[in-house]
Design a protein around this nucleic acid. Sequence first.
DNA 1: GCGACAG
DNA 2: ATCTTGTCGC
Length: 231
Amino acid sequence: MKLLPVPENTAGAVALQKMLACRIISRGDLISPGLIAGADVSVNRFGKIGWAAVVVLNYPGLDIEDAVVVEREVTFPYVPGLLSFRELPLIVSAFEKLRIKPDLVIMDGQGIAHPRRLGLAAHLGLVIETPVIGCAKSRLCGEYREPGTIKGDSEPLIYKGETVGTVLRTRDGVRPVFVSPGHRIGINSASKWVLNTCRGYRLPEPIRQAHLAAGRHRIEYNIGNPPVRRT
DNA sequence: GCGACAG
DNA sequence: ATCTTGTCGC
Protein backbone atom coordinates (compact mmCIF):
# COMPACT_ATOMS: atom_id res chain seq x y z
CA MET A 1 0.00 0.00 0.00
CA LYS A 2 1.09 3.52 -0.73
CA LEU A 3 2.07 5.04 2.58
CA LEU A 4 1.94 8.67 1.59
CA PRO A 5 -0.47 9.50 -1.26
CA VAL A 6 -1.75 12.99 -2.06
CA PRO A 7 -5.25 12.75 -0.56
CA GLU A 8 -8.21 13.45 -2.83
CA ASN A 9 -9.99 15.11 0.07
CA THR A 10 -10.09 15.14 3.84
CA ALA A 11 -12.35 12.10 3.98
CA GLY A 12 -9.81 10.08 2.01
CA ALA A 13 -7.01 11.28 4.27
CA VAL A 14 -8.95 10.31 7.38
CA ALA A 15 -9.72 6.87 5.97
CA LEU A 16 -6.06 6.27 5.19
CA GLN A 17 -5.05 7.27 8.70
CA LYS A 18 -7.45 4.75 10.18
CA MET A 19 -5.95 1.98 8.04
CA LEU A 20 -2.34 2.89 8.75
CA ALA A 21 -2.78 3.38 12.48
CA CYS A 22 -3.11 -0.34 13.12
CA ARG A 23 0.46 -0.82 11.84
CA ILE A 24 1.97 1.41 14.50
CA ILE A 25 4.10 -0.31 17.12
CA SER A 26 4.01 1.86 20.25
CA ARG A 27 6.27 -0.25 22.43
CA GLY A 28 9.93 -1.05 22.78
CA ASP A 29 13.05 0.62 24.13
CA LEU A 30 16.34 1.77 22.71
CA ILE A 31 19.44 1.01 24.77
CA SER A 32 21.99 3.27 23.12
CA PRO A 33 21.03 5.12 19.96
CA GLY A 34 24.38 6.47 18.79
CA LEU A 35 22.75 8.73 16.21
CA ILE A 36 19.61 10.72 16.91
CA ALA A 37 17.94 12.91 14.29
CA GLY A 38 15.63 15.85 14.70
CA ALA A 39 13.13 16.97 12.08
CA ASP A 40 11.14 20.17 11.64
CA VAL A 41 9.37 22.16 8.93
CA SER A 42 9.22 25.91 8.42
CA VAL A 43 6.60 27.37 6.11
CA ASN A 44 6.57 30.93 4.83
CA ARG A 45 3.83 33.41 5.56
CA PHE A 46 1.55 32.44 2.72
CA GLY A 47 1.93 28.70 3.15
CA LYS A 48 3.38 28.48 -0.34
CA ILE A 49 6.93 27.30 0.21
CA GLY A 50 8.28 25.16 3.01
CA TRP A 51 11.69 24.07 4.28
CA ALA A 52 12.11 20.67 5.87
CA ALA A 53 15.21 20.16 7.97
CA VAL A 54 16.65 16.92 9.28
CA VAL A 55 19.73 17.11 11.48
CA VAL A 56 21.60 14.04 12.74
CA LEU A 57 23.40 14.33 16.08
CA ASN A 58 25.59 11.81 17.82
CA TYR A 59 24.76 10.69 21.34
CA PRO A 60 25.65 11.52 24.05
CA GLY A 61 27.80 14.26 22.58
CA LEU A 62 25.02 15.80 20.49
CA ASP A 63 27.45 17.10 17.89
CA ILE A 64 26.03 17.52 14.39
CA GLU A 65 27.03 14.68 12.08
CA ASP A 66 24.81 15.43 9.10
CA ALA A 67 22.15 17.93 8.07
CA VAL A 68 19.80 18.30 5.11
CA VAL A 69 17.35 21.06 4.25
CA VAL A 70 14.85 20.64 1.42
CA GLU A 71 12.92 23.52 -0.13
CA ARG A 72 9.64 22.71 -1.83
CA GLU A 73 6.20 24.06 -2.54
CA VAL A 74 3.60 23.14 0.06
CA THR A 75 0.23 22.18 -1.41
CA PHE A 76 -1.96 20.55 1.23
CA PRO A 77 -3.55 23.07 3.64
CA TYR A 78 -3.10 23.00 7.38
CA VAL A 79 -5.94 21.02 8.89
CA PRO A 80 -5.70 19.97 12.55
CA GLY A 81 -5.36 16.18 12.55
CA LEU A 82 -4.09 16.00 8.98
CA LEU A 83 -0.73 17.65 9.40
CA SER A 84 1.26 14.74 7.98
CA PHE A 85 -0.24 15.19 4.53
CA ARG A 86 1.05 18.73 4.51
CA GLU A 87 4.53 18.23 5.97
CA LEU A 88 5.59 14.63 5.40
CA PRO A 89 6.36 14.91 1.67
CA LEU A 90 9.02 17.48 2.54
CA ILE A 91 10.35 15.60 5.54
CA VAL A 92 10.61 12.31 3.70
CA SER A 93 12.53 13.80 0.80
CA ALA A 94 14.95 15.34 3.28
CA PHE A 95 15.50 11.94 4.90
CA GLU A 96 16.23 10.42 1.50
CA LYS A 97 19.12 12.84 1.01
CA LEU A 98 20.72 12.02 4.34
CA ARG A 99 24.22 10.49 4.11
CA ILE A 100 23.96 8.99 7.58
CA LYS A 101 20.92 7.09 8.80
CA PRO A 102 19.89 7.77 12.43
CA ASP A 103 18.94 5.09 14.96
CA LEU A 104 16.16 7.28 16.32
CA VAL A 105 14.23 10.36 15.19
CA ILE A 106 12.57 13.03 17.31
CA MET A 107 9.95 14.88 15.29
CA ASP A 108 8.20 18.16 16.02
CA GLY A 109 4.53 17.13 16.35
CA GLN A 110 2.36 14.39 17.82
CA GLY A 111 2.94 10.66 17.58
CA ILE A 112 -0.02 8.51 18.64
CA ALA A 113 -1.47 11.35 20.73
CA HIS A 114 -3.82 11.94 17.83
CA PRO A 115 -7.59 11.43 17.29
CA ARG A 116 -6.87 8.45 15.02
CA ARG A 117 -3.50 7.53 16.54
CA LEU A 118 -1.55 8.68 13.51
CA GLY A 119 0.09 12.01 14.15
CA LEU A 120 2.97 13.35 12.10
CA ALA A 121 5.64 11.40 13.98
CA ALA A 122 3.72 8.11 13.77
CA HIS A 123 3.11 8.48 10.07
CA LEU A 124 6.79 9.31 9.54
CA GLY A 125 7.82 6.17 11.41
CA LEU A 126 5.82 3.97 9.06
CA VAL A 127 7.29 5.62 5.98
CA ILE A 128 10.97 5.53 6.97
CA GLU A 129 10.71 2.33 9.03
CA THR A 130 12.76 3.81 11.86
CA PRO A 131 11.97 4.48 15.53
CA VAL A 132 10.37 7.93 15.80
CA ILE A 133 9.25 10.00 18.80
CA GLY A 134 6.68 12.78 18.60
CA CYS A 135 7.50 15.86 20.66
CA ALA A 136 4.92 18.65 20.30
CA LYS A 137 4.92 22.11 21.82
CA SER A 138 1.20 22.01 22.47
CA ARG A 139 -1.70 19.61 22.83
CA LEU A 140 -3.83 18.24 20.01
CA CYS A 141 -6.03 15.91 22.03
CA GLY A 142 -6.14 14.19 25.41
CA GLU A 143 -6.43 15.27 29.03
CA TYR A 144 -3.80 15.66 31.71
CA ARG A 145 -2.98 17.14 35.05
CA GLU A 146 -0.43 19.92 35.11
CA PRO A 147 2.98 18.33 35.84
CA GLY A 148 5.29 19.63 38.58
CA THR A 149 7.38 22.68 37.82
CA ILE A 150 10.82 21.01 37.84
CA LYS A 151 12.71 19.51 34.88
CA GLY A 152 11.77 15.85 34.59
CA ASP A 153 8.34 16.21 36.18
CA SER A 154 5.63 14.55 34.11
CA GLU A 155 2.03 13.42 33.92
CA PRO A 156 0.35 10.92 31.60
CA LEU A 157 -1.58 12.25 28.60
CA ILE A 158 -4.87 10.35 28.42
CA TYR A 159 -7.19 10.16 25.44
CA LYS A 160 -10.49 8.30 25.70
CA GLY A 161 -9.33 6.44 28.78
CA GLU A 162 -6.04 5.36 27.27
CA THR A 163 -2.55 6.70 28.02
CA VAL A 164 -1.18 7.93 24.71
CA GLY A 165 1.81 9.95 25.82
CA THR A 166 3.52 12.08 28.45
CA VAL A 167 3.25 15.75 29.36
CA LEU A 168 6.88 16.43 30.21
CA ARG A 169 8.64 19.38 31.84
CA THR A 170 11.96 19.59 30.02
CA ARG A 171 13.28 22.58 31.92
CA ASP A 172 12.47 24.32 35.22
CA GLY A 173 9.60 26.75 34.97
CA VAL A 174 8.79 26.46 31.26
CA ARG A 175 5.68 25.08 29.57
CA PRO A 176 5.79 21.31 29.23
CA VAL A 177 6.09 19.45 25.92
CA PHE A 178 3.80 16.66 24.72
CA VAL A 179 5.70 13.46 24.06
CA SER A 180 4.19 10.38 22.44
CA PRO A 181 5.47 7.32 20.59
CA GLY A 182 5.64 7.72 16.86
CA HIS A 183 6.62 4.19 15.91
CA ARG A 184 8.80 1.34 17.22
CA ILE A 185 9.17 2.85 20.70
CA GLY A 186 7.17 2.86 23.92
CA ILE A 187 5.83 5.74 25.97
CA ASN A 188 8.40 5.52 28.76
CA SER A 189 11.35 5.20 26.43
CA ALA A 190 10.07 8.11 24.35
CA SER A 191 9.99 10.55 27.24
CA LYS A 192 13.32 9.19 28.49
CA TRP A 193 15.08 10.01 25.23
CA VAL A 194 13.47 13.40 24.92
CA LEU A 195 14.74 14.25 28.39
CA ASN A 196 18.17 12.79 27.61
CA THR A 197 18.57 15.10 24.63
CA CYS A 198 17.45 18.29 26.37
CA ARG A 199 20.42 20.56 27.12
CA GLY A 200 19.25 23.71 28.80
CA TYR A 201 16.40 24.55 26.44
CA ARG A 202 12.74 23.62 26.41
CA LEU A 203 13.03 21.64 23.19
CA PRO A 204 15.32 18.62 22.79
CA GLU A 205 18.52 19.44 20.89
CA PRO A 206 17.71 17.43 17.74
CA ILE A 207 14.46 19.36 17.19
CA ARG A 208 16.05 22.65 18.17
CA GLN A 209 18.86 22.21 15.67
CA ALA A 210 16.44 21.18 12.92
CA HIS A 211 14.28 24.21 13.66
CA LEU A 212 17.30 26.50 13.47
CA ALA A 213 18.51 24.94 10.23
CA ALA A 214 15.12 25.31 8.54
CA GLY A 215 14.83 28.90 9.74
CA ARG A 216 18.26 29.81 8.37
CA HIS A 217 17.29 28.60 4.91
CA ARG A 218 14.05 30.52 5.05
CA ILE A 219 16.01 33.69 5.81
CA GLU A 220 18.29 33.03 2.84
CA TYR A 221 15.25 32.69 0.63
CA ASN A 222 13.78 35.94 1.91
CA ILE A 223 17.01 37.79 1.11
CA GLY A 224 16.95 36.57 -2.48
CA ASN A 225 13.19 37.19 -2.78
CA PRO A 226 12.34 40.40 -0.96
CA PRO A 227 8.64 40.44 0.03
CA VAL A 228 6.56 42.77 -2.14
CA ARG A 229 5.24 45.73 -0.20
CA ARG A 230 2.56 48.27 -0.71
CA THR A 231 3.39 51.92 -0.16
C1' DG B 1 -25.17 23.04 17.65
C1' DC B 2 -20.72 24.44 20.22
C1' DG B 3 -16.01 24.39 21.41
C1' DA B 4 -11.25 22.47 20.43
C1' DC B 5 -7.86 22.30 17.19
C1' DA B 6 0.02 19.52 16.27
C1' DG B 7 2.20 23.10 12.60
C1' DA C 1 3.49 28.10 11.31
C1' DT C 2 4.23 33.47 10.91
C1' DC C 3 4.03 38.73 12.09
C1' DT C 4 8.02 41.20 15.77
C1' DT C 5 11.26 44.83 20.32
C1' DG C 6 11.54 45.40 24.21
C1' DT C 7 10.95 43.70 28.56
C1' DC C 8 10.04 41.13 32.91
C1' DG C 9 11.97 37.46 35.70
C1' DC C 10 15.01 33.55 37.35
